[in-house]
Computed example of a mutant assay.
Amino acid sequence: MRQNAGVWAAIFIFLFGLMFFWMSLSFDYMGPEGPGPGLLPLWLSGLLIILSVVYMMNSIKHITRFKDILPRGKGFINIVTIIGSFLLFLLTVKSIGFVMAGTLFLFILLAREYQWYAGLGISIGISIILFWVFCKLLSVPIPVNAWGW
């Protein structure tokens, strides 16, 4: 079982569903005008718990080893790059603002496949467009730097 990736995935999904099931109990199941805010998360997380148990039973029968599904070579480097750039984004977004952190995040992802100037241009453009849409149009509070972006 220690090497069975399917069982571990099922355990993770089960715990995830259980956490959301528990959290959904804090919302009203029914409101004054019909279904309340707790209805959908309760049923979806309950379904997720049931499906994870079914998947676990199936995974016990059909063993999938970690070494068979984990990528090697360039695929592994791509995953490490994505996770690393995302962590860098999370660590820097509050101090340098969304536009600069988003530009850095996207540039790291795009620099391996595009010329540096094309990757930088795309990164800046997408970050500014996302900032404009969410901050200006939708009034979503987004972390900004000293210059307001």
Rank of each mutant, 00 (worst) to 15 (best):
R2V: 12
V7F: 12
W8P: 05
W8Y: 11
A9Y: 03
A9C: 12
A10I: 02
I11M: 09
F12C: 08
I13S: 08
I13R: 02
L15T: 10
G17N: 02
L18H: 01
F21I: 02
M23S: 13
L25G: 15
L25S: 15
S26E: 14
F27V: 06
D28Q: 13
Y29P: 03
M30P: 00
P32L: 14
E33T: 15
G34Y: 05
P35A: 15
G38V: 06
W43S: 04
S45Y: 01
S45Q: 01
S45T: 02
G46P: 02
L47P: 04
L48P: 00
I49K: 00
I50D: 05
S52R: 03
V53I: 15
Y55M: 15
N58C: 14
S59F: 01
I60A: 14
T64D: 05
T64M: 08
P71H: 11
G73Q: 08
K74W: 09
G75A: 14
F76Y: 13
I77T: 11
I77Q: 07
I77E: 10
I77N: 08
N78H: 12
T81N: 10
I82N: 09
S85L: 07
S85Q: 02
F89T: 06
F89A: 05
L90Y: 04
K94R: 13
S95H: 09
F98I: 05
M100E: 05
A101C: 13
L106S: 00
F107C: 04
F107I: 03
A111L: 11
G119E: 06
I122T: 11
I122N: 03
I124Q: 03
G125I: 05
I126Q: 02
S127T: 00
S127W: 02
I128H: 02
I128N: 05
I128L: 10
I129K: 10
L130G: 05
L130D: 01
F131V: 06
F131R: 03
W132Y: 15
V133N: 11
L138M: 14
L138G: 08
S139T: 09
S139Q: 12
V140A: 10
V140N: 08
P141D: 10
I142W: 02
P143Q: 13
V144W: 05
A146F: 11
